[in-house]
């Protein structure tokens, strides 16, 4: 891109970002601010690390968890982030009805996380086994495999519902 073209685009080009007010969601911002406070109360620090584990979901839950990182939600602002290893996690997200083939993986992930670790079941499958409950290939809800502290129902829950669930989880946790 030539310099002239660049300058032209910068000064006369169309808008390339959106003004904040066009997508600011008051409810979401409020939950985020509360989460920030809770994190400080619980950990005395500024951040909460989450490890997401797919226990057998349909990938809809994963889509919503990924959406939490996009510019509309951007949960990093509130001190929340997904980490690559359970060793770094304060909180475990488990999705889907836990399948027989993933039972061991879910268990080992939980064992690898430092205690205390808050476990959150995300989606109907994870909370109650969903429509696949009792199938020969499915163990069932997450609490059949590891202890669960908070449940976020939904098919799948929306990003806002997930954030609300995180807040509820933190509020119920003792220091």
């Amino acid at each position: 891109m030539s310099l002239l073209k660049l300058l032209k685009m910068l000064f006369f080009g169309p808008r390339v970002t959106e003004p904040k007010k066009s997508f600011e969601d008051q409810e979401f911002e409020k939950i985020g601010a509360d989460i920030k406070k809770e994190i400080r109360r619980l950990y005395g620090g500024r951040s909460l690390r989450i490890r997401a584990v797919d226990g057998g979901s349909t990938n809809a839950e994963e889509i919503e968890l990924t959406a939490l990182g996009n510019a509309y939600y951007d949960i990093d602002r509130f001190g929340l982030s997904f980490v690559a290893s359970p060793r770094h996690a304060d909180m475990l997200f488990v999705t889907g009805p836990v399948t027989r083939n993933l039972e061991r993986a879910v268990k080992t992930t939980y064992e690898a996380a430092p205690q205390p670790c808050i476990v959150v079941a995300i989606g109907d499958g994870a909370c109650i086994g969903g429509i696949w409950k009792d199938s020969y290939a499915v163990v069932g809800a997450v609490d059949k495999v590891i202890p669960v502290h908070v449940r976020i129902p939904g098919d799948p829950p929306t990003p806002t519902e997930i954030l609300k669930g995180i807040l509820a989880a933190l509020r119920s946790a003792k220091k």
Binding site: D54, N101, Y136
Partner: peptide, 11 residues
């Protein structure tokens, strides 16, 4: 693969 096998075909 087949970690998320939920038995849908059978159900």
């Amino acid at each position: 693969l087949f970690f998320t096998h939920k038995g849908v075909e059978k159900i």
